[in-house]
């Protein structure tokens, strides 16, 4: 087993697309002609440790505006009814599902894996490694980022 950065990007794109399309019925792209500019404080962040078979960590950084749109679609609520707690729950479940989907694609079938619980907050990401990679995706021109520390999986 062992992946390189290009393979990781391809596999991560599949995992992100599968998750967003199934959970939120939205299409994910890796590029856009008119990316929206989002200010730093308009994002929510969450991270998740990979505990076994190798240590790693993934983070998801997503604009609140985009999360709100996903939450409105998921919960059938109006935008006014969407609270910060709902947004945190949505981003946490998105990252949890993306990470599982990624692990199933990276690891052979006979490798069990264990994940931690998602943690949200401004200080998240990513103390576990110097090898931090970031991958940007778009939904309706709004960017979101997956940060990954998966160097142990490169060996």
């Amino acid at each position: 087993m062992g992946i390189n950065q290009q393979e990781l990007k391809n596999i991560l794109t599949q995992a992100v697309s599968e998750t967003i399309e199934n959970m939120a019925f939205m299409i994910v792209s890796t590029e856009t002609k008119n990316p929206e500019t989002i200010q730093g404080d308009e994002y929510l962040k969450t991270s998740l440790l990979i505990l076994e078979p190798y240590p790693g960590e993934l983070g998801l950084i997503m604009p609140k505006k985009l999360l709100s749109k996903i939450a409105v679609s998921l919960y059938s609520l109006s935008e006014k009814e969407i609270t910060e707690n709902i947004l945190i729950d949505v981003i946490s479940e998105l990252l949890n599902t993306i990470t599982g989907s990624l692990m199933r694609r990276i690891l052979p079938d006979n490798f069990e894996y264990k994940l931690g619980l998602p943690e949200s907050g401004d200080q998240i990401l990513i103390e576990t490694s110097s090898e931090l990679e970031q991958f940007t995706f778009f939904i309706d021109d709004q960017p979101f980022t997956i940060a990954a520390c998966l160097e142990a999986f490169y060996q």
């Binding site: 949890n96 599902t97 990470t99 599982g100 989907s101 692990m103 199933r104 690891l107 079938d109 006979n110 490798f111 069990e112 894996y113 264990k114 994940l115």
Partner: peptide, 9 residues
Amino acid sequence: LSSAVNAAK
């Protein structure tokens, strides 16, 4: 139903 399952699990 979990994100932490594969064939081995």
